[in-house]
Design a protein around this nucleic acid. Structure first.
Lengths: 109, 109
DNA sequence: TCAACATTTCAAGAGATATTGAGATATGAA
DNA sequence: TTCATATCTCAATATCTCTTGAAATGTTGA
């Protein structure tokens, strides 16, 4: 993953409403969830949910597909994995402490 | 790691100058680097480097220690590992695709 | 003490981001 | 076609973020 892409994803994830959306959509798996459902889950008005969903989509964190009158959003699992790889390898140079810590081989904060 | 802490770290990392600082400081290891060095490495004026260093420190990504007239910054390896754990486990619910992808067991973006 | 060095702090301005409510668009059903 | 549903877009506002250059702080050595 390129730095620019990673920065966009990090920016998109650094917001309370949006990280909740991602957490919910990851939980929904391949099935995804409609914009309205997502909004209800995270306690956002329709326009606010729409704004954050499109921010996440632009950053590549999630993607959407219209299903009749609903729009279904899904987490982009590959991209999320790619971001974590970026942090682990490119940004953190595969530092052994970080890798150990994040793989549960070492206690951390 | 708590959500608030993770959001702060994600926000801090989602900026070009700052991610370069982190990459450089991770490379410096336990030894760390002085603010001036960091600024030169990332091509920032002293005040700009100072601003970004303090943003990163406030978010817990790095920490500082004065050594005579220099101030030495170091990456917080535990916190970085904690953030990656947060993304992997809490936020992404240990989803198998994401985990496989970020551990190099599966190709991704 | 004084000069230099290393870094931070401050104020101002430009630009990005988040929230709100109203209105527009698109789809499906009666 | 008309209505209800689902979602998005828009404009206004408030707030945060980044950059810059100047000035202040703290430290060391002559």
């Amino acid at each position: 993953m390129k730095e620019k892409q990673a920065l966009d994803m990090l920016g998109a994830l650094s917001q309370e409403t949006r990280i909740r959306i991602v957490r919910y959509l990851v939980g929904c798996g391949e099935q995804g969830a409609a914009a309205g459902d997502v909004g209800k889950q995270v306690g956002a008005t329709s326009s606010r949910a729409s704004f954050h969903l499109s921010t996440l989509e632009q950053a590549g964190v999630i993607s959407s597909e219209r299903q009749s009158r609903k729009i279904i959003y899904r987490a982009n699992f590959d991209r999320l994995g790619g971001l974590i790889s970026f942090l682990l390898d490119d940004c953190c140079g595969s530092h052994p402490d970080i890798r150990a810590c994040c793989l549960g081989q070492k206690a951390c904060c």
